[in-house]
Amino acid sequence: MTWPERHLRLSQAALYLAILAAWELLPRGGVIPRLFVPPLSEALGTLVADRREYLGSLPTTFGEILVSYVLVCGGGIAMGQLIGSSLTARRMLLPVLRSAYAVPLVVLYPVMMVWFGLGSESKIAFASIYAFIPTMLTAVAGVAALSPALGETARAFGATRAQQILYVSLPASLPSIVAALRLGGALVIVGVIVAQMLGAADGLGYLITRHRTLLNSPGVYAGIVLVLGITGMHEILLRRLERKVAAYRQS
């Protein structure tokens, strides 16, 4: 039995409400110690009260995310297109890239701090490297899955190599490009925040760590709420984009 769309929407909203209510009520009722999870209202109260501090950490955070985003998605998608469109390149490079993907790159962060210092450079370097390979692999998979029939058809109608790329391969891989953007963006946000938590002098991740060392749980969760807001915004934007390019999907 399938539910009508309206029922699905309603129950999703109810689920969100239940989670928020649990966040508020369980600590208040003493089920969860407030030190571990303070009630939602306390976290939001701290966020409003200390808004100067939290908002002040955003320019650095957004700047680092943006630069990494451009590096990862620009470079990763471009390289993904190149590797994906050549069978030889795929066969040679994919196993190497997959094993590189398996390395927990977080271990590299201390090294990057030595190389690039405590400032934004080390965050950008870490987030970019962290997100690059999965983003590229997503783009490769998208290009590799394109049916050669459309290209062949275009060729039969006289398309040059450049026209085949411009009118066929590129539009046909738009869905996979958006999928790569979505994944790359999410990983870049994680990368920047984690790097800031591990060692920084500014940024949202740094704020979270500082409040944690002071055992100021509402302060920690105020930061977490902001991080959730950033990832949520990114998700909503990319979903919209995904719907826009849905027509480009090969049936």
Partner: peptide, 19 residues
């Protein structure tokens, strides 16, 4: 090479550009 103005081609699958 393909001579699309002299020879038109129709494949087993329609191979239309979906967008």
């Amino acid at each position: 090479a393909p001579m699309p103005r002299k020879v038109g081609m129709i494949f087993q699958e329609a191979n239309l550009l979906p967008w």
